[in-house]
Write a protein that binds this DNA or RNA. Structure first.
Lengths: 202, 202
DNA sequence: GAAAATATGGAACATTTGTTTGCATTCTTT
DNA sequence: AAAGAATGCAAACAAATGTTCCATATTTTC
């Protein structure tokens, strides 16, 4: 059983305040909310929570208490796969998404909305948002976002990537569809590797 | 085309600073980063960005500039479905996840890690994390997390919910499995409705 | 090119906020 | 009960930070 003491109250309050306001509370905010009479007391609580590894705080910076392990990475939602060229300048993104850093700490991430059924057997459905790590190469069996340069197809697709006998195979995870084996390998450009997905049932 | 002026530089910096530190920058931080000579100038930028709807700021509060539309809802990851009783006090959660408020603004959310293949045809795979809105009722066709009180099964399961002819049907989206039609309806407790999911390919 | 409008800077000021110190109180241990 | 440790408080101080005022530069308009 976890002790439900004042320290945990402070931790909960910091979390809640940050959720509601988008920035952390001051020492005096904590005092007011938890009926603590002295700022020194709240200040001490913060330091103990820091020692115990529950939160971080930048010295002498106002409103800088942050819950440890809550770090997020932000990735832009760039567009729709299969509906034109999605990867352009940062300006035409459709917003940013916060992803838990613990899971998605790849450096350069972006999101794409998936259109079509070609990866349905891999659990990627029409309308899903995939989390893509930007890279130009891929290993056998990885799911990639690839783009065709030569006009044989418009835009980009999501497929499972294989290289066999010097040929690149883009394999849809849908038994009603055929593998794509491009004649000209140079015409294929890997935009990134799919490392996660988000779905909203609505 | 979007004008790439100083205002947008400020906006980008606020976003980046917040991503990296977990709390917003001060006016002087902005000055230092963007080579702005006077705090009045940066202060003015902030106000204009606020007027144009790009960010919010609490008056007279230090480090309180936040990007508008970036609000997140936090939901605790409570455990594993089908492996014991997952829904307990907030204390034994395995961490919090930030979800974009724009999509998941239901009030009381939590996450569960899915175990098993029973919903595979609905695109919910073993290991996925589902986002659940806590509620005790469900509509026909919704995917729910349900728990059995009477010991016929241990713990909770994810199934599609139907009520037909006075009977509750819990339908696995897996053609190799049978519907669950409990004798005693009262023994079934709806814990929530699945409204989203997250997956990490690793 | 002059006038007007706008943008930026310098500096001071006001407020918020973090931090320290010492003391009183409560709890623990002996 | 006494000693010691931990906890909480009040008050003051120092630093960080938001805010304002006005002068100067820059751009726009006519």
């Amino acid at each position: 059983m976890i002790k439900h003491d004042k320290l945990m109250d402070v931790l909960d309050y910091v979390r809640r305040y940050n959720d509601e306001n988008g920035f952390p509370p001051s020492v005096r905010d904590i005092c007011a909310a938890l009926n603590i009479k002295s700022t020194a007391t709240a200040y001490d609580y913060i330091n103990r929570l820091r020692e115990q590894g529950y939160l971080d705080k930048a010295e002498k910076k106002n409103r800088s208490v942050v819950i440890r392990g809550n770090a997020t990475v932000r990735a832009p939602l760039l567009g729709v796969v299969n509906a034109g060229r999605p990867i352009l300048a940062v300006e035409d993104n459709e917003g940013y998404y916060a992803l838990p850093e613990a899971e998605f700490k790849g450096e350069d991430l972006f999101l794409l909305r998936v259109h079509g059924e070609s990866m349905i057997e891999a659990g990627i459905f029409d309308g899903d948002k995939i989390i893509v790590k930007r890279q130009t190469t891929a290993e056998n069996g990885e799911i990639v976002v690839a783009m065709f340069d030569d006009g044989t197809m418009e835009g980009a697709t999501v497929k499972r990537f294989f290289r066999r006998g010097g040929k690149i195979i883009l394999h849809p995870e849908n038994s009603t569809m055929e593998d794509i084996i491009p004649e000209n390998q140079a015409s294929i450009q890997i935009l990134g590797k799919v490392i996660g997905l988000m779905r909203s049932f609505r």
